[in-house]
Lab assay of single mutants.
Amino acid sequence: KEMRNAYWEIALLPNLNNQQKRAFIRSLYDDPSQSANLLAEAKKLNDAQA
């Protein structure tokens, strides 16, 4: 469930391009235990690109 939530949050971040989203989501599938960390990194990048 945590992975699914992280997937959708990443997919809906407005300032990431599709390539960036795909990279984060690929990492999510590679290591679901890192969901919270990956989401935090994606949000950080999203904010930096705002």
Results as ranks from 00 to 15, higher is better:
47 D>N: 12
38 L>D: 01
39 L>Y: 05
25 I>A: 03
14 P>E: 08
42 A>P: 00
49 Q>D: 04
29 Y>D: 03
20 Q>G: 01
49 Q>A: 12
46 N>G: 02
34 Q>C: 06
27 S>C: 06
35 S>F: 11
5 N>G: 12
43 K>L: 08
12 L>G: 10
23 A>L: 13
15 N>C: 03
43 K>H: 15
7 Y>A: 04
42 A>M: 01
37 N>L: 13
43 K>I: 07
8 W>E: 09
36 A>W: 09
11 A>D: 04
1 K>M: 09
45 L>H: 03
18 N>G: 11
50 A>G: 14
4 R>D: 13
21 K>Y: 02
21 K>T: 02
31 D>N: 13
29 Y>E: 05
1 K>I: 14
40 A>C: 04
4 R>V: 14
25 I>D: 01
50 A>Q: 10
37 N>T: 06
37 N>W: 13
40 A>K: 13
22 R>F: 09
21 K>Q: 02
42 A>R: 00
38 L>F: 04
13 L>M: 14
21 K>G: 00
38 L>W: 04
8 W>M: 13
48 A>Q: 13
17 N>Q: 05
9 E>I: 13
28 L>N: 01
47 D>Y: 11
50 A>V: 14
4 R>P: 08
22 R>Y: 10
42 A>N: 00
40 A>D: 12
26 R>I: 09
23 A>Y: 11
29 Y>M: 11
5 N>M: 07
48 A>V: 11
22 R>E: 10
11 A>V: 12
6 A>T: 12
37 N>Q: 11
3 M>W: 15
38 L>I: 14
13 L>K: 02
5 N>S: 14
41 E>G: 03
13 L>N: 01
6 A>G: 05
47 D>A: 15
38 L>Y: 08
44 K>R: 10
16 L>C: 01
15 N>L: 06
22 R>Q: 12
14 P>D: 06
15 N>W: 12
33 S>Y: 08
16 L>G: 00
31 D>Q: 13
16 L>M: 02
46 N>Y: 01
44 K>V: 14
5 N>E: 15
32 P>A: 07
1 K>T: 11
9 E>W: 07
9 E>C: 05
20 Q>R: 02
19 Q>C: 15
12 L>K: 15
9 E>D: 04
31 D>H: 13
26 R>H: 10
45 L>R: 03
9 E>F: 10
50 A>F: 11
34 Q>M: 15
35 S>A: 06
2 E>I: 06
37 N>H: 09
24 F>V: 02
19 Q>E: 15
27 S>L: 13
39 L>M: 09
8 W>G: 04
47 D>H: 07
5 N>R: 12
19 Q>N: 12
1 K>A: 14
17 N>G: 11
22 R>I: 10
35 S>I: 11
10 I>Y: 00
41 E>I: 12
20 Q>H: 02
8 W>L: 13
18 N>E: 12
23 A>I: 12
16 L>H: 00
11 A>S: 13
4 R>K: 14
24 F>K: 01
15 N>D: 05
14 P>H: 06
47 D>K: 08
45 L>Q: 10
50 A>E: 14
3 M>L: 11
10 I>T: 01
45 L>C: 03
33 S>W: 04
28 L>R: 01
36 A>R: 13
23 A>Q: 12
50 A>T: 07
5 N>F: 13
8 W>I: 11
41 E>A: 12
24 F>C: 02
13 L>E: 00
4 R>F: 13
16 L>T: 00
7 Y>S: 09
11 A>M: 09
3 M>N: 08
29 Y>P: 01
35 S>C: 04
6 A>F: 10
